[in-house]
């Protein structure tokens, strides 16, 4: 994969400190992501991976005590989640939310309309949208019936995760943050999800993929792998770092390494 090191980063995290209540969770995180790149973030439970993706998406409940989140060259700290979404940030949640009484189809349509409006595109006719959605749903191995059901309500764990990727592929963001989208997927679903992500991948897209398992990285080959421990990135490397982690765990990284990779 061609590296795009000369690109200006689409996402630039600088010395980010984030607390929940009195509890400091991110303690000086730095990360730079450019278009065309896939970054994998790994790390033990509770190290702050979801906190990081949530904070980039603007989820309320976190206090940013220090640092910056620069997206496309501007600080987004003051922006509401919907503004960030309309600028092209997408978050596939670790725990997708159920929306009683809101159908998948109308949900996606409303969201897409909001994004298209922001992009200065015209409204899609219902029929066009339905056709478009049907194709996307098929690519994710979804029965058309699932589009008529309420968002995530009664969905299996795997269906919820696939639904997140379906939303990504319909909404077509620039920066996709995928928080453990591979957790709880069976082997077939993992392939479907990986295919979705790989189809999305491209020179105009950036992906940050949070995972616990090397397995998904066999399908989605990352350009960089980062290890987040106790709110800091303690090591970055290529995809071979993931293999190392798989074999050795995180313990050896808890001591600050003498020289970073």
């Amino acid at each position: 994969m061609a590296q795009t090191n000369h690109n200006r980063p689409i996402l630039d995290i600088r010395d980010l400190h984030v607390s929940v209540g009195d509890n400091e969770i991110l303690r000086g995180m730095d990360l730079s992501v450019s278009l065309g790149e896939v970054h994998a973030i790994m790390g033990p439970n509770g190290s702050g991976k979801s906190t990081f993706t949530n904070v980039v998406a603007g989820r309320p409940g976190y206090t940013i005590t220090k640092g910056e989140i620069i997206y496309e060259g501007e600080s987004i700290l003051g922006m509401f989640p919907d503004e960030r979404a309309r600028k092209g940030i997408f978050l596939a949640l670790q725990y997708p939310v159920e929306l009683p009484g809101i159908r998948n189809r109308e949900f996606l349509r409303t969201a897409l309309e909001a994004l298209r409006e922001a992009r200065g595109e015209t409204k899609l006719a219902i029929r066009e949208f339905n056709k478009f959605l049907e194709e996307k749903a098929k690519a994710m191995d979804f029965e058309p019936d699932l589009m008529k059901r309420n968002v995530n309500e009664g969905f299996s764990g795997g269906e919820k995760k696939r639904n997140e990727i379906l939303q990504m592929s319909v909404l077509d963001p620039k920066l996709a943050l995928l928080d453990e989208t591979d957790s709880g997927l069976d082997i077939d679903a993992l392939k479907v999800v990986s295919r979705g992500v790989n189809e999305f991948r491209g020179p105009d897209k950036a992906i940050v993929l949070v995972t616990h398992y090397q397995r998904i990285l066999n399908y989605i080959k990352p350009d960089f792998v980062h290890v987040l421990i106790e709110g800091r990135i303690v090591r970055s490397g290529g995809s071979d770092l993931a293999q190392e982690l798989e074999a050795q765990g995180y313990e050896w990284l808890r001591e600050p390494p003498e020289q970073a990779a």
């Binding site: 989640p81 809101i102 909001a114």
Partner: peptide, 27 residues
Amino acid sequence: DDQLFYLMQRGIKEEDAQYMIINGFCK
């Protein structure tokens, strides 16, 4: 808040997101 955030994360304005949730409640 979780439902609201989820809808807004997909680009839907807060007010519209609220209506969608309320509407869903009345479905």
